[in-house]
Amino acid sequence: MTRRVLACGLVVFALATAACGERAQPAAGSLSVSSLPPTTSTSPAAPVVSRCDAAVLKGEITPTDSGAGNRYGKLFVTNSGAAPCTLNGYSGLQLLAEDDSAVPTKLERVATPGPTPLELAPSGKAAANLHWSVVPAGAEPVDQPCQPEARKAAAIPPDDTKPMSLTWDYGPVCGGGRIEISAFYPA
């Protein structure tokens, strides 16, 4: 009886190890198990690239064009860190008065260019396109500034909660503070 239990135990063991990827090989009245050779990797692990955030990004807004009441600019960000970081998506943006109080801002995302993952090397740059109007809309006054004039802006990088502080010297933004913004792209 003991031999039968032992023999059944060896068969079960052999089947279990075979099912787990090991080969069972009987040898002269006993059962030996050899495992598969270990796998080794000669390539180093890929470095982990962190997300670009307000702690490593420096930002600025630069005007690019104007005409017929339309204003265009770019929000540039530069990786000021010592390591690469990734950036993907749209920035948040809030216009601010000199005392940091909010000035009406309605940020609207545009699809072109859309979000694409970017890796910014140290000192690498990315840009987002901006468009706004200085022509009063709706009930906005035509004999004075259409909205309070901003002096600063707070821009929040994609997937971050902390803002970068920027200068805004581009006058009031009409249409209730409507600014169109694209996703970031390589600059």
Rank of each mutant, 00 (worst) to 15 (best):
Ser32Pro: 12
Gly177Lys: 03
Phe184Glu: 01
Leu120Glu: 03
Ser35His: 14
Val48Tyr: 09
Ser43Met: 15
Ala128His: 10
Pro145Leu: 02
Pro117Asn: 06
Gln144Ser: 12
Ser50Asn: 14
Pro26Tyr: 03
Ser34Tyr: 14
Lys125Asp: 05
Gly59Val: 00
Tyr185Gly: 02
Arg109His: 14
Asn88Gly: 08
Thr64Val: 03
Thr62Ser: 14
Ser182Gln: 07
Leu15Ser: 04
Ile179Gly: 02
Ser34Thr: 13
Gly29Pro: 05
Val48Gln: 11
Ala128Val: 04
Gly69Cys: 02
Cys174Tyr: 00
Asp65Thr: 08
Ile61Ala: 05
Arg51Val: 12
Ser41Trp: 15
Ala139Gln: 12
Arg109Phe: 13
Ser133Asp: 06
Thr116Cys: 10
Asp53Thr: 06
Val56Ser: 04
Ala18Ile: 08
Pro38Ser: 05
Arg3Cys: 11
Asn79Ala: 02
Pro37Asn: 06
Gly29His: 03
Gly124His: 04
Ser123Gly: 12
Gly73Thr: 00
Val49Asn: 07
Cys20Asn: 13
Ser30Gln: 13
Gly177Phe: 01
Pro157Gln: 07
Val49Arg: 14
Ser80Ala: 09
Leu87Asp: 08
Pro141Ile: 03
Pro115Tyr: 07
Gly89Phe: 02
Ala126Leu: 03
Cys20His: 12
Ala102Thr: 11
Thr39Tyr: 14
Ala111His: 08
Leu87Phe: 12
Val5Pro: 14
Leu166Arg: 05
Ser123Phe: 15
Asp159Thr: 10
Asp169His: 13
Pro186Thr: 00
Val77Phe: 09
Arg23Pro: 11
Ile179Leu: 05
Val33Pro: 09
Ala54Leu: 05
Phe76Arg: 14
Ser43Trp: 15
Val103Cys: 05
Val49His: 11
Arg3Glu: 11
Ala27Asn: 10
Gly92Pro: 05
Asp99Ile: 03
Lys58His: 13
Gln144Glu: 11
Gly73Met: 01
Leu75Arg: 01
Cys52Phe: 04
Leu36His: 09
Pro145His: 04
Ala18Glu: 07
Trp168Cys: 07
Ala102Leu: 15
Val11Leu: 14
Ala16Cys: 06
Ala150Gly: 11
Leu57Lys: 06
Thr78Gly: 05
Thr17Gln: 11
Ile181Phe: 07
Ala28Lys: 14
Gly67Asn: 01
Pro158Thr: 00
Tyr72Trp: 11
Ile181Thr: 02
Ser50Pro: 15
Asp65His: 10
Val56Lys: 09
Ala137Glu: 10
Ala97Lys: 13
Ala137Met: 14
Gly175Ser: 01
Val135Gln: 09
Phe13Leu: 12
Val110Thr: 08
Glu140Arg: 12
Ser41Gln: 10
Ala155Asn: 08
Ala83Pro: 15
Thr42Gln: 14
Arg4Gly: 08
Ala18His: 10
Trp132Pro: 02
Glu180Ser: 09
Ser41Ala: 06
Ser34Leu: 15
Gly89Met: 03
Pro84Ile: 06
Gly114Cys: 07
Pro113Phe: 01
Arg109Ser: 13
Gln147Asp: 08
Ala7Ile: 06
Pro186Gln: 00
Leu15Met: 07
Thr64Met: 04
Pro113Asp: 01
Val12Ala: 04
Ala121Gly: 11
Ala27Gly: 09
Ala153Gln: 04
Thr62Glu: 14
